[in-house]
Simulated scan of single mutants.
Amino acid sequence: MSSGVWIAVIVAAAVIVVLVIAAVLGPRRRSRRLRRRFGPEYDRTVEAAPNRKDAEQELTDREKRHEELDLRDLSPEEKQRYDAAWTHIQEQFIDDPGGALDAADRLVTKAMTDRGYPNENYDQQVADLSVEHSRPLGRFRAAHEIAARAGHGEASTEDMRVAIVDYREVFAELVGVDHGDHHSTSHHQQ
């Protein structure tokens, strides 16, 4: 064989090796990126999907939808109003835990809407939040579930307290306020 043919064979073999490496490492790189971005939500989505590929496609679709949202930060005045509303909810909890929990649920939803998140339905809210707020998402789910049980009279005062703490974590991240020592409240970790 001529040296030109050998060079072509070597180049073709090198291209094949590069393509094989890309085919093997590409999905792993994608998985690592999605796992970093979504945290515990990545594992939850993989567990709920028929396979990893479908789960990762769902997460990628969430990212694409999220990019199309017109999200904004709240102004300092809005943050101050939200913080005052949250303080009122905490005070309300003493006399009316169920009412305070309902108000917390509504306030978190309003904060989401004011930031630009669509208010289509709960499942879509969770999917949209998962892209930027994946860390407190388990707490949001837990709080929402307790709020639903409380609406049927099936949650204890302690359950409602836990839900308020969970909502507070999501609220603080959404609104961009720091509740200082409130974060250290003894509570289960998600």
Score class of each variant (00 low, 15 high):
Q92H: 06
Y82W: 01
Y122P: 01
A22F: 07
D159F: 08
R149V: 01
R35E: 14
A23H: 13
I7R: 06
S2E: 06
L19Y: 13
S3W: 12
P27H: 05
A111F: 06
S31I: 07
S186R: 13
D128T: 02
H183A: 13
V9K: 03
F93Q: 08
R37P: 00
P97N: 06
L101A: 10
R72Q: 14
W6A: 04
P136N: 01
R52F: 00
V15S: 12
I10S: 07
Q57S: 11
K53N: 12
H133Q: 07
R62H: 14
A103G: 02
R37Q: 15
A22D: 10
E63N: 07
T87E: 13
H179W: 14
Q124L: 03
R139W: 03
S184R: 09
T109D: 14
Q80V: 04
H183Y: 15
R33E: 14
S130D: 04
N119Q: 14
Y82T: 01
S2W: 07
V162S: 06
S186Q: 11
H66D: 06
L19H: 10
F38G: 03
D102Q: 13
R149H: 11
S186N: 07
E68C: 03
V15D: 05
E78K: 08
P27Q: 02
L71I: 10
R161V: 01
P136G: 02
T157Q: 08
V15N: 03
A163Y: 01
V108D: 05
S156P: 10
D114T: 03
D83S: 12
K79F: 09
F171L: 01
A12M: 09
Y42M: 06
E132R: 14
G39L: 10
W86R: 03
A111E: 04
D114Q: 11
D128N: 15
V131H: 06
V126K: 05
H152G: 04
R65K: 14
G116K: 07
Q57I: 02
V18R: 08
R44N: 01
A49R: 09
A23M: 12
Q124N: 06
D96I: 03
E78V: 01
S156E: 12
S2H: 13
W86D: 00
E47N: 05
R44I: 09
I7A: 15
A13S: 10
N119F: 07
T45I: 11
K110N: 03
D178T: 12
E68A: 13
R28P: 00
A143I: 01
E158Q: 12
A55I: 11
R72H: 15
I10W: 11
T109M: 13
H183T: 11
K79N: 04
G26M: 04
R141D: 02
E154D: 13
R30S: 15
R52A: 09
I10T: 14
E120C: 03
Q190T: 10
R135D: 07
V177L: 04
W86P: 00
R135Y: 12
A23E: 12
F38A: 03
H133I: 08
N119D: 15
A147S: 13
Q124G: 00
Y167K: 00
A85M: 05
R37D: 11
P136R: 01
I7M: 11
V17I: 14
K79H: 09
R149E: 09
S75V: 05
E68P: 00
